[in-house]
Nucleic acid binder design. Structure first.
Lengths: 153, 153
DNA sequence: ATATTGTTGACTAGCTTAGTCGGTTATTAG
DNA sequence: CTAATAACCGACTAAGCTAGTCAACAATAT
């Protein structure tokens, strides 16, 4: 389980796609200037995102990348997982085999994973918009932080 | 902000110290066999933990490492921070300067940091012990997961 | 004294990150 | 049709990080 700059690139790029989804496909060149990453490196990342079915690429002029599913049905855990194999949930039987302190770590790890899996792209964006509105209105912040709502159930 | 294997080593080692704190100082050799990491690598990590005042080393026979503060006053964020500079909270003015998708990322990052900063070593251990008791008694699991209690405020 | 354990520093193989380069399709605007 | 656009694809690479080794030295309990 790693939360690296690579993962950050993947997530910020996906946020970009979600934000601009009304304007049609987003080109890697656009993301490249916005986030100052090289197009070639983005190509590597998007190859993996595409392989996992998170985005679709459209070639030719006017082409670019789109989210394959609606933003509300894509969570942060699967984005990280797409670009980094080490991001995963450990199943209980495997955890039980390990020495005590590693077992504790595994559970912590799974909890992080669940935490991220509960956050959809639309949550992240929605939270951001809410925050902008709130700062203009000078309202108090929500208890659990900006942009993240834990499911009711 | 990174959550790497290095950070995992640091946290699991600190958990080990907390678990065995009644038996006096814990040697790196002990942790080494428990977690199958080399003593020399542990030395590097503990040098940083010591520099940040999280542990104290005691030399000579019967020596080893102890937590410098009680487990309830050490949180996961500062452990990670000790061994990895990139783990930190971004201050608001700096965040405001960045492009939109990065700004969203920064907030997510800070939220994650706060999440980790809310979890103390004793929380982690307590949760683990609770879990063992609970599994023996066959009680339902708590809503928010094992080992983590969000502060009342 | 001597064994034990921490402390410090130099060094390293291998992996990951964050790219570059050069090309090949597919698609569309003109 | 053709030229431009942009996604695809694979090989390569410099720099940095991870996870270690090794050697020497310092403090301390017995």
């Amino acid at each position: 389980m790693k939360l690296s700059t690579k993962g950050r690139y993947a997530i910020t790029a996906m946020i970009e796609l979600a934000l601009r989804h009304k304007q049609g496909p987003v080109t890697l060149a656009d993301i490249s200037v916005e986030q100052s990453i090289s197009v070639s490196y983005l190509e590597q990342l998007f190859a993996q995102l595409r392989k996992k079915g998170l985005v679709t690429g459209m070639r030719g002029p006017g082409g670019g990348y789109c989210l394959r599913r609606p933003a509300s049905e894509i969570n942060l855990a699967e984005i990280l997982q797409a670009v980094d194999e080490s991001v995963r949930r450990m199943n209980e039987p495997a955890v039980a085999e390990r020495p005590k302190s590693l077992r504790i770590w595994d559970k912590l790890n799974n909890q992080f994973f669940d935490y991220l899996a509960d956050i959809s792209l639309s949550d992240v964006i929605k939270g951001h918009q809410d925050e902008e509105v709130r700062s203009r209105l000078d309202l108090p912040k929500p208890t659990f932080g900006v942009g993240i709502q834990r499911p009711a159930a």
